[in-house]
């Protein structure tokens, strides 16, 4: 048996916050994707912790699906990045200037 779930959940919340800050603060598109992965990992850690505390296998199954989604998302996201940036010099979001928002 492991230590109390509060520590795990707190760690996951902090991990989620770091990921969210990264997405909002960083301008490099690839790093932004990595930060989204951090957020998904925080959610996974939360699922597994709840699964242990509740004694419910369902939480672990959910992690499985989140993993699949993350994989599909990364394939498409990196595809978009490659499609755009193979003609350009840098991978920062600020170079996206055609659309003014």
């Amino acid at each position: 048996m492991s230590i109390g779930p509060a520590w795990y959940l707190g760690l996951a919340a902090v991990l989620f916050a770091i990921g969210a800050i990264g997405v909002l603060v960083r301008r490099n598109v690839l790093v932004m994707f990595m930060c989204i992965e951090l957020m998904l990992n925080a959610a996974n850690l939360t699922f597994v912790t709840f699964s242990r505390v509740l004694g419910d296998i369902g939480g672990q199954s959910l992690v499985f699906f989140v993993l699949v989604v993350a994989a599909a998302e990364v394939v498409v996201g990196l595809g978009i990045v490659v499609a755009i940036f193979r003609r350009r010099k840098s991978t920062t979001a600020d170079d996206l200037h055609v659309l003014k928002g």
Binding site: P5, L9, F16, A17, V53, L54, D56, S61
Partner: peptide
């Protein structure tokens, strides 16, 4: 937001759910 989540979770004693709904571990 993160502090809010942790605070809210702590006030509800972290876990409130029903046990082993989708099958026991």
């Amino acid at each position: 937001a993160a502090t809010g989540i942790i605070f809210l979770a702590a006030t509800s004693h972290w876990v409130t759910g029903a046990h082993a709904v989708a099958g026991s571990t």
